[in-house]
Design a binder for these strands. Structure first.
Lengths: 154, 154
DNA sequence: GTCAAAATGTAGTACAGGCTACAAATTACA
DNA sequence: TGTAATTTGTAGCCTGTACTACATTTTGAC
């Protein structure tokens, strides 16, 4: 098959001049890595929500809203901190950095757009909300624009 | 706050009579578990593809198509076997069980539908294919029906 | 001010999915 | 047929996400 003179397998090289299967591989790879950001996005959005509605975002509340144990929430919050999206003062709650706020806002807008689109297509509100939760993390900018365009011009 | 007299936290109980936050929690939980099936779905679909086009589905080909190492592919194939979706004879390739075939078919139909919808909304083919790869795993039956309905009546 | 309850944090475990490195089987071909 | 290349399989490691169990800090009620 005339592979490159390397030992490893996944094509982490140049990227670009690959045949059909390369395209597919890149697509799947993208999907996978998106999963790791999905959770961060959910947390950022929820924290922004809590901050706005309650004035503070406590790990316990975050855990309850997300349906996970507080331990899990705390660990994920650590990831947020590592990613420079949030800060936290022990027993004083979690806060978003500027970067975190920006992310939360993008996510919020995107979520609304996806829900609105689904509803416009005739999906019942409840299902639209539920599905959007999963879908939103995989909608590219281009697709998002198409959604907005469709909603505007109908 | 009047919690239930249990020690644990995530509400794995009855499910149903919870306030607003319960709904949200259940929604997120669903999203999470969907991720574990997404990969099985991708594999099932790809294996069906290879079986149809090549006559056989070898771990190496699967790995290449998915952009992962063959070791990773083999591990995932083991999961498929454990889930009763596939069988494999060493050095003879991977095969789908009836259940696996059924899943692959459902996934194929759903994928087409999602891509068609995106394209109908004006998303360029390439982006539609790419986004569908992530989106499709989170589209419920209800939403799927709405998509079909929309495509038919436009 | 003390003490119990609640919130928070930490440790240890499990599993999925990813990798590399190495081993073994099969296939291809000289 | 014997050997090299390819394919397949296994082992060990890492990270992310989840859990339970236990420890610690705060808070609140008395």
């Amino acid at each position: 098959m005339a592979r490159a003179p390397v030992t490893s397998e996944p094509d982490h090289s140049a990227a670009g001049k690959l045949p059909a299967e390369g395209t597919q591989a890149r697509r799947f790879g993208k999907t996978r890595s998106a999963q790791s950001t999905a959770l961060l996005e959910d947390y950022a959005e929820l924290i922004a929500d809590l901050l706005a509605s309650e004035g503070e975002a406590r790990p316990t509340d975050i855990a309850r809203r997300l349906g996970v144990s507080h331990a899990t929430a705390i660990k994920s919050i650590s990831r947020l901190k590592r990613a420079g999206l949030a800060t936290a003062r022990p027993y004083r709650g979690v806060f978003l950095t500027e970067k975190g706020h920006a992310l939360a806002e993008r996510v919020r807008v995107r979520h609304r757009l996806v829900v609105d689109l689904l509803r416009a297509l005739g999906v019942p509100s409840e299902a639209a909300e539920a599905d959007a939760e999963g879908i939103e993390h995989y909608v590219s900018e281009i697709t998002l624009k198409a959604f907005a365009q469709f909603l505007k011009s109908r």
